[in-house]
């Protein structure tokens, strides 16, 4: 059976007539995507909220597309009337990333912006929010960026727990002590 997207197409047309320079896509049932340049994001959010009944703001996320030198910001809205999730996506440059502050449209965006500023280093000029949200005294590059390596950071910053230096195989020691043999199938897990 072919699925029909009647309400999704209605939304598609409304956005198509209201905005030029945006790419629209009906991704699946109850999900419509808008790819917009960054200066159009705030007008789209306002239009969706005031005119299309997208009263509720669900989520703001950031994705690091390091290979394209871009960050993607995704604003997810939800309409209590049509039950459609509207995804507004925009790409900003990775070097010196700046995005318009939108916490005047939905105030909970403030919390998301604090997180994204801290985790990705995206600046939102003009918004008020304490600098530190999750991290404390952080001096490295913003940690959710793809070029931040957790493993390197951990091995450089923290010491190994004492008592593990010899890297002994406890299982082998117990087997030796009690005169037992480790079965063949389990030998592949032994330390060399």
């Amino acid at each position: 059976m072919e699925t029909t997207f009647i309400k999704e197409e209605l939304l598609f047309r409304q956005l198509e007539t209201a905005f030029e320079n945006v790419v629209l896509e009906i991704a699946r049932k109850e999900a419509v995507l808008v790819y917009a340049p960054k200066e159009l994001v705030a007008p789209i959010l306002l239009y969706a909220k005031e005119k299309l009944g997208y009263k509720s703001f669900s989520h703001l996320s950031c994705v690091d597309w390091i290979e394209n030198d871009e960050f993607e910001l995704v604003y997810i809205l939800w309409s209590p009337e049509t039950k459609i999730n509207l995804f507004v996506k925009t790409r900003i440059e990775r070097e010196n990333p700046i995005m318009e502050n939108t916490d005047t449209i939905w105030r909970q965006i403030n919390t998301y912006q604090r997180e994204i500023r801290e985790m990705f280093g995206v600046e939102f000029p003009g918004f008020i929010g304490e600098k530190e949200f999750i991290l404390e005294d952080w001096e490295e590059i913003p940690p959710m960026r793809r070029d931040f390596d957790t493993l390197d950071y951990v091995s450089e910053t923290f010491d190994e727990r004492p008592g593990r230096e010899d890297k002994q195989d406890v299982r082998e020691r117990i087997a030796n002590r009690s005169g037992e043999e480790i079965p063949d199938f389990a030998k592949k897990y032994s330390r060399e």
């Binding site: 999750i134 404390e136 957790t150």
Partner: peptide
Amino acid sequence: VGYLHRAFEKLIER
């Protein structure tokens, strides 16, 4: 907040 940050979303990327 920040007393129990375990960086789950970063770990998931690996």
